[in-house]
């Protein structure tokens, strides 16, 4: 199967990428992470273009670089399969369906009756569900990311600043130099702790050998 793909002409490969991502974003409701199982099925199980390890790498990468996860995945897989043109084809495929659907809905929207109580109810219901979804996503991110009391404090400071209407863009930019200082401080602390550990174990080894020597001396 892999050979078959490798022998595909460049044009066919680009078409395959475009169509696959067209299908993925046309069918999957929800965020970029909801796409992962579908990506796995198409590119790992069926087409055998990626290994499972590569997919794991991709998952890490898509959450590392900025940008929405869906497009990040498309770009990465496109790169793997057909280089930069592949990345562009995959991204274009991922964009086309939501773009069209939203355009149609957005142009219909003004024709809806804004006072219709059923319509209002539908929107209220979906908003409440979305609130729950963001809350769950946020909690999962919190658990994955925040690992010490100091980090909890930092998150709280950022949160309060955001509530006080500090621009979110500014907050993210400020977070970068903060992260550098933090990582630097952490590695220094770790190094110091290791050094201390090393010394103490050396000391204990010395004392052990000393006591052994003493015992031997006693025997003599």
């Amino acid at each position: 199967m892999e050979m078959e793909i490798r022998t595909l002409s460049r044009g066919r490969r680009l078409l395959l990428l475009y169509c696959s991502f067209f299908r993925i974003t046309a069918l999957v409701v929800g965020g970029g992470l909801a796409m992962l199982p579908v990506i796995e099925e198409i590119f790992v199980v069926k087409r055998k273009l990626l290994t499972r390890e590569e997919l794991l790498d991709m998952t890490a990468l898509t959450q590392t670089v900025p940008g929405i996860i869906a497009i990040n995945s498309a770009v990465y897989i496109g790169m793997k399969v057909a280089g930069v043109p592949g990345a562009i084809a995959a991204a274009a495929g991922a964009v086309t369906p939501p773009f069209t659907v939203i355009l149609v809905i957005a142009s219909l929207f003004p024709h809806l009756d804004p006072k219709n109580r059923y319509l209002l109810g539908v929107f209220a219901g979906i908003r409440a569900a979305v609130t729950g979804m963001i809350l769950v996503t946020g909690c999962r991110m919190f658990r994955r990311t925040v690992k010490s009391p100091l980090e909890i404090a930092v998150v709280l400071v950022f949160f309060v600043l955001a509530i006080m209407k500090v621009s979110p863009a500014l907050l993210i930019l400020a977070a970068v130099p903060f992260g550098w200082c933090y990582v630097l401080w952490q590695t220094r602390r770790l190094a110091r702790a290791e050094q201390a550990n090393g010394e103490s174990s050396k000391v204990s080894a010395e004392s052990a050998s000393e006591s052994r020597r003493n015992e031997e001396g006693g025997k003599c």
Partner: peptide, 8 residues
């Protein structure tokens, strides 16, 4: 609607 939330 289907598709990534950010893009929509």
């Amino acid at each position: 609607t289907p598709g990534p939330v950010g893009l929509n």
